[in-house]
Design a protein around this nucleic acid. Structure first.
Lengths: 235, 235
DNA sequence: TAGGGAACATACTACCGAGTATGTTGTCAA
DNA sequence: TTGACAACATACTCGGTAGTATGTTCCCTA
C-alpha cells in the first residue's frame, strides 16, 4: 500500500554504485536547498546556480546528482509528498472513531505543513502550473505519476471524510468539494504563515488546532475534545 | 472610500494625451492576454513575446503601453483587484443582517473567482512570490501599494466576519485566522476549477453556494436560506 | 498640405541561464 | 603504485528573453 513512494536514483543502471545506503547526504542537501529557493522565488525564477550558491557548491555538483532542473523539481516534489505521507498515513488506521482519525490526520497534515514550509510551497506551486510544458516523454510520465500520488493523498482524506460522514450522520452534498475545501483550510498556512520568534512548536500546535476545528466545522461536525491528546504524549 | 483603485496611466506627464477616455481598448486587451498567459505558465515563465503572440501583435506594441514586464504584472494584478472590489464592495452596505451581507459578499467573491480565472490566478501567484526582487524604487512603492489593497480587501471580509460574530453570538478565538480560512475555502477553486461544457453559470452558482455554506459553517453558523435570492433576481 | 505625433512593427543588443564538456582531486581495489 | 572511478569544480556553448533603437503608417491639426 505504501509502494507508491520509492527513492528512484537517476543513476539507475550504473554498474558500480558502492555508494548505496549512505549516499543520500549530499542529495538531501540539494533537495533542501532547492526547496528553499523554489519557495522564495518560484520554480522558473530559480536558477541552478541559485541552488548551488545556497549550498556553497557549484552547478556541476548539482548536475552530478540530477539530470535536469525539471528532474530536480520532481525530486523535491516527491520528497515533499514523502514527508506528508509519513506524517499522515499512520493515523489512517488509528483506533477510535472515524472522526478522531480524521482529526488526527488533519492535525498531522497541518503541523507538517508549517514545519516543512519549503517543500510544501513547492508542492503548492504544483504540477498544474509550470509543468504544462514538460518536454521529455519520461518527464511526462513522471509528471502523471506525481499527480497520481497527489490524488491518492487527497483520496486518503476524502475517504476519511466519507467514513466520518457516515459514522456521524453528516449530510455532505458534494464529497469532492468538501474534501477540497477541507484541505484548502489546512493548506492555507503555506501562503501566510511564517514562524515567530520564540515559540516554534507550541504556536504551530495552536494554529493547527484552530485550523482543524474550522475545517471540521465546515463539514458540520466538531473537534472531539480528546482526539489529539495522544499526539501530544508522543512528543 | 473607493479612492484606492485608480487606473494610473504610465504616460503620466505627457503633454498631449488626446486619447484620454476611449484609450483603454488595446490596453485592456493586453491585460486580458497577459492574465491568460500568467495563468497558464506563471509570471516568470511568460515572455512578453508570449503575450504578444496571444494578441497577434508584437513586443513593440506591448512596450508602447507598458514600461516593463513588472509594470504589466502590476497592472494585471490591479485589474484583478478592481474586478473583485466591483463585485464584492456593493454588498458591504446591503440591508439585512450582518450574516446575510457576509454571505452575499462571499457568494459574489466566489462567483467572480470562477468567472475571471485568469486574473484571479495571477492574484494568487501573488505579490509575495516573484516580486521579492522588485528592482526599482518606484516598483517597490507600487508593490507595497498593491499589498495594501489586498489587505484592505481582506479587511472587508474580516470586518464583516467580526460583525457577523457579534450579531450571531459566535465565538471566534482567532479572527485573523478565521478570515484567512474563510477566504481560503472560497479561493480554493482557482487551483482546481475549470468550467465544464454546457453549464457555464448555473454550475458556478451551485459550487459557490456549497463553498459559502462550508465557509460559514467553519465560522460556526449557517447560510440563511433567503440570503442569496436577491442575487438571482438581479440576473 | 506639410508635419508632428500616436500607435504600432522590425531589427538589434546584451545578458542570463540550462545544459555540456572537460579538468581536478581523493579514494579504494587489485 | 597504479589506475579506475566517484565526486565534484571550471570553462564554455547556445538559445531564449528583457529591453532599446529605429523604422513605418495613419490621422489630426495648424
Amino acid at each position: 500500500m505504501s509502494t507508491v513512494l520509492e527513492p528512484q536514483t537517476h543513476d539507475a543502471g550504473a554498474p558500480g554504485m558502492q555508494s548505496r545506503g549512505h549516499s543520500s547526504g549530499s542529495r538531501s542537501d540539494i533537495l533542501a536547498a532547492a526547496a528553499k529557493c523554489f519557495m522564495k522565488n518560484g520554480y522558473s525564477a530559480t536558477s541552478i546556480d541559485d541552488v548551488a550558491r545556497q549550498l556553497d557548491a557549484t552547478k556541476g555538483m548539482i548536475y552530478h546528482h540530477f539530470r535536469s532542473k525539471t528532474d530536480l523539481f520532481f525530486a523535491v516534489y516527491r520528497r515533499g509528498m514523502e514527508i506528508n505521507y509519513a506524517a499522515v498515513e499512520p493515523h489512517v488506521s488509528d483506533n477510535g472513531t472515524a472522526l478522531e482519525r480524521l482529526a488526527r490526520m488533519a492535525f498531522a497534515h497541518s503541523i507538517v505543513l508549517m514545519a516543512e514550509q519549503a517543500f510544501q510551497r513547492t508542492l503548492a506551486e504544483g504540477v498544474a502550473m509550470h509543468l504544462t510544458g514538460a518536454t521529455t516523454a519520461a518527464q511526462r510520465e513522471t509528471l502523471t505519476e506525481l499527480i497520481d500520488i497527489r490524488n491518492q493523498y487527497e483520496g486518503m482524506f476524502r475517504s476519511a471524510i466519507r467514513k466520518t460522514a457516515k459514522e456521524e450522520g453528516l449530510e455532505i452534498a458534494n464529497l469532492s468539494l468538501a474534501s477540497k475545501s477541507f484541505l484548502a483550510v489546512l493548506n492555507s498556512t503555506v501562503s501566510w504563515y511564517t514562524p515567530r520568534a520564540n515559540d516554534p512548536q507550541s504556536e504551530q500546535k495552536k494554529l493547527a488546532i484552530d485550523l482543524v476545528t474550522y475545517a471540521l466545522r465546515g463539514l458540520g461536525t466538531d473537534l472531539p475534545s480528546g482526539a489529539l491528546k495522544t499526539k501530544e504524549n508522543a512528543q
